[in-house]
Nucleic acid binder design. Structure first.
Length: 564
RNA sequence: CGGGGCGUAGCGUAGUCCGGUUAGCGCGCCUGCUUUGGGAGCAGGAGGUCGCGGGUUCGAAUCCCGCCGCCCCGACCA
């Protein structure tokens, strides 16, 4: 494609609103433009890259027997009422004002609508149906460019099976296809397993990629692949050892000491000798939570342990419940349920609040001094701790969710009456699986992980073009003629070529633009080289470059592309 | 939805606190000449409802009131 005739509006400076690298670079490289918060246009270059992603997805979905659909974004609200999801989505769903339609945020309903009464027999199953289309969600806060938008392209697939065993097969097919898709796209993914209770399903996997622009914090073990959201992640930690002898409880006057740090400073003790108290309210019941030292309470784990939702107690409540303000609260004499982190199991000689302002207690023995204490894992796994499944060191970082597969079950088929007749003639609901991929996220995520100070660094699979051909001074006949020849030959050899044939751009300008756009290989034709029958071949990723005979350009391109 | 920040030419910005020239600068854009291997030089030029509406004032980008939009942090995320 001739750059002089192609719309690639590059920007030297980053727009003020772009913050994360992928957003900055996609804007600067002329791939995308923002239209509103969370709404983006894909310009020709960005669309080419996005089409590459979609084509990879399409090939792998077709390879497992998937059949592509084109479904409406405009859905009758009625269908969504049948599954109760108008209410479930709430404000996240866009509603049309002058017609009883909604903009589809996903397509379980429509796919199931097509399945019902048509997939009538066990002979019609299994089926894998998918689509690659725009979805709409009224996100409260769109952010990070196309990573969280109000309108975004999603590949979603649905499997329809006769029973749980058959669903396992469909699920496994998708699991395999997803690994291939992300591998081919060149993103380094890992998998977080989880149970998806709210969806009524029995199992799920999230395909995540490490990224500073990520919205989830996960613990990950590189050695064995263990990965989990920090809200549920576990790690092996050493409990505080019980001393042979328990000291007597002593009351200590600690004026103005309110935090563990201040307590340690005041008493010249280590924080591992302290038990931090936090008061939560679970339902109507006050619960005192004890953590070793200054560790943070993992509220998700606390809710899991208590089996109900919790909230931190208000400042006024604390005084009423404990007799003291935050900073002087402790387990001894606490009237109510006491739950301590496992690291404190049977610990003694601890310091904690006295439930009396400006006083702490020393010599606390949880076994001796706290009646009916319970223990549970209530902490966050931290980077550097030990993996529970293999003993290697855990890493904790933020990540972006690119894909999610889960065993859905019969939630939608039952709600919409999508049943089939089995071999015995008895009617049963179809078992579904649901499998999503955020298409733009793959692109953004790839760029997050593959760029340098000059711009984007594409791999072959996603690059909008294989080769960027630069004619340095197009007014010189030797350069122009060589470029035309090379452009024709590379194209005929099957490479997609972006040809910078602009006559008014200086050499340096073209180099900067090419580095920003980031095609894997640059072929540079300058006047001196051209007259000697040579050109320059540069690998964008490494900046490795060398001169080569013009006659060898096809071979040279192949060799350079093999390096990316 | 809570907290914070911002809105001046296509992009980046100065000016706003303390009202008073024709709203300034860099990049980009147009014309001409020169230049041509790492975002060129000179000369000339075009481009602005200062986010919108109302108010105060002789006079508002600047002060006051209301609204809108965008970004960031948090909450939320089937």
């Amino acid at each position: 494609m001739r750059q002089s005739k192609t719309f690639i509006p590059t920007l030297k400076e980053a727009p003020n609103d772009a913050v994360v690298p992928s957003h900055v670079l996609m804007t600067r490289a002329g791939m995308t433009r923002q239209v509103a918060a969370g709404v983006y246009s894909f310009l020709p270059l960005g669309w080419r890259a996005l089409r590459n992603v979609m084509e990879i997805i399409r090939e792998e979905m077709d390879a497992i027997g998937g059949q592509e659909f084109q479904l409406p974004a405009l859905n009758p609200r009625e269908i969504w009422e049948e599954t109760g999801r108008v209410e479930a989505f709430g404000d996240t769903m866009f509603h049309i004002k002058n017609r009883d339609y909604v903009l589809a945020p996903t397509h379980e309903e429509i796919m199931t609508y097509h399945a019902r009464r048509v997939l009538a027999s066990y002979k019609d199953l299994p089926q894998i149906w998918y689509q690659i289309q725009t979805k709409f969600r009224n996100e409260a806060r769109p952010r990070s460019g196309v990573i969280r938008g109000r309108q975004f392209i999603m590949k979603d697939a649905y499997s329809f099976d006769v029973d749980a065993e058959a669903l396992e097969k469909s699920y496994a097919l998708h699991d395999g296809a997803y690994r291939k898709i992300f591998d081919r796209c060149g993103v380094e993914f890992f998998i977080v397993g989880a149970s998806s209770g709210a969806m009524g399903g029995s199992g799920s996997e999230e395909f995540m990629v490490r990224s500073d622009a990520g919205e989830d914090t996960v613990a990950h073990c590189e050695k064995c692949g263990y990965a989990a959201n920090v809200e549920v992640a576990q790690s092996k930690t050493s409990p505080k050892k019980r001393d042979a002898k328990s000291a007597a409880v002593e009351e200590i006057h600690t004026p103005n000491v309110r935090s563990i740090d201040e307590l340690c400073e005041f008493l010249k003790i280590d924080e591992t000798q302290c038990a931090k108290s936090r008061v939560y309210v679970a339902g109507d019941e006050p619960v005192l939570v004890l953590m070793l030292g200054n560790e943070e309470v993992n509220e998700a784990k606390l809710e899991g342990a208590l089996g109900k939702a919790v909230r931190p107690g208000h400042a006024e409540e604390l005084k009423e419940i404990t007799g003291a303000d935050a900073g002087s609260i402790g387990p001894v004499g606490f009237k109510g349920r006491v739950v301590a982190d496992e690291r404190l199991k049977d610990a003694n000689n601890l310091y904690s609040g006295a439930n009396k302002n400006d006083y702490h207690l020393g010599g606390i023995d949880l076994k001796r001094d706290v009646e009916k204490i319970e223990y549970a894992d209530l902490r966050f796994a931290l980077a550097g701790e030990t993996c529970v499944s293999c003993g290697a060191t855990l890493d904790v970082f933020t990540a972006i969710e690119l894909g999610h597969i889960f065993k859905l079950g019969t939630k939608y088929t039952e709600a919409l009456g999508a049943n089939y007749l089995d071999e015995n003639g008895s009617e049963k609901p179809i078992i579904m699986g649901s499998y999503g991929i955020g298409v733009e996220r793959i692109l953004a995520c790839f760029i997050e992980g593959s760029h340098d100070e000059h711009g984007i660094v594409w791999n072959r699979a996603l690059a909008p073009f294989d080769v960027h051909l630069l004619g340095l001074n197009m007014k010189k006949p030797a350069v122009a003629e060589t470029c035309e020849d090379v452009y024709r030959r590379l194209s005929e050899a099957g490479y997609s070529v972006l040809y910078d044939d602009r006559v008014d751009a200086q050499a340096g300008f073209k180099f900067k633009d090419a580095d920003l756009l980031g095609m894997p290989v640059q072929v540079v034709v300058g006047e001196r080289n051209a007259k000697e029958g040579k050109l320059e071949v540069k690998v964008r990723k490494t900046f490795e470059r060398h001169d080569a005979p013009i006659a060898d350009v096809e071979k040279e391109a192949a060799a350079a592309l093999a390096k990316v």
